[in-house]
Design a protein around this nucleic acid. Structure first.
Lengths: 170, 170
DNA sequence: GCATTTTAGTAAGATATCTTACTAATGTTG
DNA sequence: CAACATTAGTAAGATATCTTACTAAAATGC
């Protein structure tokens, strides 16, 4: 639909002049990748949280548990790189997981700067429990697309992130 | 490239068995919309921040200023809906903008629950200054695509967010 | 017109995310 | 080997985001 030619009554000519272009910019804002990606991330997280409420785990925590299952024992820098997070964020998330006894953290005897992370039995159990609802949330999010579109969506997102990946200083 | 058949030396047979499927799940994780959208949002924000460092403004603040330019005077709930943010987040961002004297906030005399927000002259100046770098960041992010792909990317993101929009309780 | 409900906003607390700056341990180099 | 540089991690502080719970004001309904 086009921008309405009718404006609210209380607008003076002067106000209207500024407002018309500003309205246009609002529409443009809402179609920018930045705005859309914030919303998309928001929506995606919400779907995950809905699907896993009982398990009390976040998307980021789920990501870390998944990475640990594949790569334990691994240190925080290693996990930060795989997650594409900085060191501080990684340290915080790791601490929360450790506080919940989902992972354990021990100093690497061969390099005492490092903390080696491993899943606990509890962490492994939780990860198993989360997998299905996580996949369900993921499928539900993509259900607005047909198969080809979904593939395209993933491919374009992958290209966007890989192509703009400015190697943070984790 | 295919998954390497060679595994690190220090893996026992038992470890390898668990690891193979877990490795697969790691790859799947990294191709999930949730993971990709987090990264994409991260990348997009980083591009914006790089392009606007001198101006000391965030993506969210820029969004609010843009909305205000189009819709002032508007109350916080109104802006929350346009930004797709909850009331609390909106209140926080608004407070930061007010502290920086980029907006002003006055109680609506006709409904004293409401705070009407308006840009200050300073806020208008900043918004003008941010527009170009913001657009540059946006264009740069999309530069990994050709024109058709970029259009597709925006269209798919729009459908994803609109199609999964669960009307938060702002 | 008063009691109930709804609405706008704030408060408090949690997680995620980043930056800058620090400590401690390891690595490198003359 | 000692000085310097690099690396792993933590600390502190900022913004963004959500939830739950509260206050105050307006709207609604009998």
């Amino acid at each position: 639909m086009a921008v309405s030619a009718r404006l609210p009554e209380d607008m003076t000519t002067k106000t209207r002049a500024r407002t018309d272009s500003a309205q246009q910019e609002l529409k443009e804002l809402q179609l920018r990748p930045g705005f859309l990606l914030r919303r998309a991330h928001q929506v995606s997280s919400a779907l995950f949280m809905e699907a896993t409420t009982a398990l009390n785990v976040t998307t980021t925590q789920f990501g870390m548990l998944t990475i640990l299952a594949a790569r334990e024992p691994i240190d925080q820098i290693g996990i930060a790189k795989l997650m594409r997070l900085d060191r501080s964020t990684t340290g915080l998330v790791v601490k929360n997981l450790e506080d919940r006894a989902l992972i354990e953290r021990v100093t690497d005897p061969e390099d005492r700067r490092r903390r080696l992370l491993r899943l606990t039995a509890e962490g492994r159990r939780l990860l198993q429990a989360v997998k299905q609802p996580a996949k369900a949330a993921h499928d539900r999010g993509l259900s607005v697309f047909n198969a080809e579109e979904a593939k395209s969506f993933i491919a374009l997102l992958t290209r966007f992130v890989d192509g703009n990946d400015s190697e943070r200083q984790s």
